[in-house]
Lab assay of single mutants.
Amino acid sequence: KTEWPELVGKSVEEAKKVILQDKPEAQIIVLPVGTIVTMEYRIDRVRLFVDKLDNIAQVPRVG
């Protein structure tokens, strides 16, 4: 699995749990929505963009 659209609106902790069940090797990085990030693709990275309430604001994707 490479993306988790069902996690939008969920808490960071809930999202981490689901992603690590699907992809145990994932390196999860939590960032505020709108953060500028590098464009290199990494198969072991999932970025979680969160709103001010620490809920997932964008679809988490591998990369």
Score class of each variant (00 low, 15 high):
46 V>F: 05
50 V>E: 00
16 K>T: 07
63 G>K: 13
59 V>M: 06
55 N>S: 08
13 E>C: 07
24 P>Y: 00
10 K>L: 10
15 A>F: 02
16 K>F: 05
58 Q>K: 13
27 Q>W: 05
39 M>E: 15
55 N>I: 13
2 T>I: 10
42 R>N: 10
20 L>K: 11
30 V>C: 06
7 L>I: 04
3 E>A: 08
36 I>P: 14
50 V>R: 04
58 Q>M: 15
43 I>L: 13
17 K>E: 09
52 K>I: 09
63 G>R: 08
44 D>A: 07
61 R>A: 12
4 W>G: 02
59 V>C: 10
49 F>A: 04
1 K>N: 07
20 L>H: 14
54 D>G: 14
5 P>L: 03
46 V>L: 07
11 S>Y: 11
37 V>S: 15
53 L>A: 14
44 D>L: 04
14 E>I: 12
57 A>G: 05
5 P>F: 00
46 V>M: 06
3 E>C: 10
34 G>Q: 07
14 E>C: 10
45 R>F: 15
44 D>C: 07
5 P>D: 02
39 M>W: 09
53 L>C: 14
62 V>E: 07
25 E>A: 10
23 K>E: 07
6 E>L: 04
14 E>S: 08
12 V>P: 03
53 L>F: 15
3 E>D: 07
6 E>S: 05
37 V>L: 09
38 T>W: 05
44 D>K: 06
45 R>Q: 15
36 I>F: 11
2 T>N: 12
28 I>L: 10
1 K>A: 04
38 T>P: 14
34 G>A: 06
27 Q>D: 14
3 E>W: 05
35 T>N: 10
28 I>Q: 04
28 I>P: 05
21 Q>D: 09
18 V>G: 06
20 L>E: 07
7 L>Y: 00
43 I>G: 11
9 G>E: 00
15 A>D: 02
31 L>D: 08
18 V>Q: 11
58 Q>C: 10
36 I>C: 13
15 A>M: 02
28 I>T: 06
9 G>W: 00
56 I>N: 00
20 L>A: 11
43 I>D: 15
9 G>T: 02
33 V>H: 08
52 K>C: 08
47 R>N: 15
37 V>D: 15
48 L>M: 06
41 Y>M: 12
44 D>S: 09
11 S>R: 08
16 K>G: 03
10 K>W: 08
5 P>V: 03
41 Y>H: 12
62 V>P: 05
8 V>K: 03
53 L>V: 11
22 D>A: 08
56 I>C: 04
26 A>W: 04
12 V>Q: 07
58 Q>H: 10
16 K>E: 05
49 F>D: 04
31 L>R: 07
27 Q>H: 09
28 I>G: 01
18 V>H: 09
14 E>P: 03
46 V>N: 01
26 A>K: 04
22 D>T: 07
42 R>C: 13
22 D>R: 04
52 K>W: 06
36 I>W: 07
29 I>P: 03
40 E>F: 05
6 E>V: 01
33 V>N: 04
45 R>C: 15
34 G>V: 02
63 G>H: 10
58 Q>N: 10
4 W>V: 01
10 K>Q: 09
34 G>C: 05
30 V>P: 03
8 V>R: 03
28 I>S: 02
8 V>C: 05
9 G>V: 02
25 E>Y: 07
55 N>K: 15
15 A>T: 01
8 V>Q: 04
17 K>G: 07
42 R>G: 13
9 G>K: 01
43 I>C: 10
34 G>E: 11
27 Q>V: 09
53 L>I: 09
12 V>H: 04
62 V>I: 13
19 I>A: 01
62 V>M: 13
47 R>F: 13
63 G>N: 11
7 L>V: 09
49 F>L: 08
33 V>K: 08
28 I>C: 11
52 K>A: 14
17 K>D: 05
57 A>R: 08
23 K>S: 08
1 K>E: 06
41 Y>G: 14
51 D>T: 01
14 E>N: 06
8 V>W: 01
50 V>F: 05
44 D>Q: 08
29 I>H: 09
48 L>Q: 00
61 R>Q: 09
5 P>Q: 04
32 P>R: 10
29 I>W: 06
61 R>M: 13
60 P>C: 03
60 P>E: 04
59 V>T: 13
40 E>D: 14
22 D>C: 07
9 G>F: 02
34 G>W: 06
1 K>S: 06
45 R>V: 15
21 Q>T: 13
13 E>L: 10
54 D>S: 13
14 E>A: 09
48 L>P: 01
40 E>T: 07
30 V>R: 03
34 G>H: 08
15 A>Q: 01
27 Q>K: 13
35 T>F: 03
33 V>D: 04
18 V>D: 04
52 K>V: 09
4 W>H: 00
15 A>E: 01
20 L>C: 07
31 L>Q: 13
20 L>W: 09
22 D>K: 04
23 K>C: 15
37 V>F: 09
34 G>P: 06
21 Q>R: 13
33 V>L: 11
26 A>V: 13
4 W>F: 04
29 I>R: 08
63 G>Y: 09
27 Q>R: 12
18 V>C: 09
57 A>Y: 05
14 E>F: 13
26 A>S: 09
29 I>K: 12
36 I>N: 15
13 E>I: 08
57 A>Q: 07
17 K>W: 07
53 L>R: 13
50 V>C: 07
24 P>N: 01
56 I>G: 03
16 K>L: 04
11 S>A: 08
32 P>I: 04
46 V>C: 07
51 D>E: 05
36 I>S: 15
3 E>I: 08
50 V>K: 07
57 A>L: 06
45 R>M: 15
8 V>E: 02
43 I>S: 14
21 Q>K: 12
40 E>Q: 06
16 K>Q: 06
32 P>K: 11
57 A>T: 11
3 E>T: 08
37 V>N: 14
63 G>D: 14
59 V>Q: 00
9 G>P: 01
12 V>K: 07
34 G>R: 06
18 V>K: 11
8 V>M: 10
52 K>S: 14
41 Y>T: 13
20 L>M: 12
39 M>A: 13
53 L>Y: 13
31 L>T: 11
57 A>I: 09
61 R>P: 00
62 V>G: 06
50 V>P: 02
49 F>E: 06
32 P>N: 07
25 E>G: 13
52 K>H: 12
41 Y>E: 15
43 I>T: 15
35 T>Q: 12
53 L>Q: 15
11 S>E: 05
33 V>E: 12
19 I>E: 03
62 V>L: 12
18 V>M: 10
42 R>Q: 15
53 L>N: 15
49 F>I: 11
60 P>V: 05
24 P>E: 04
18 V>T: 09
7 L>W: 00
29 I>V: 15
28 I>N: 03
5 P>K: 03
22 D>W: 05
9 G>S: 03
56 I>W: 00
36 I>V: 13
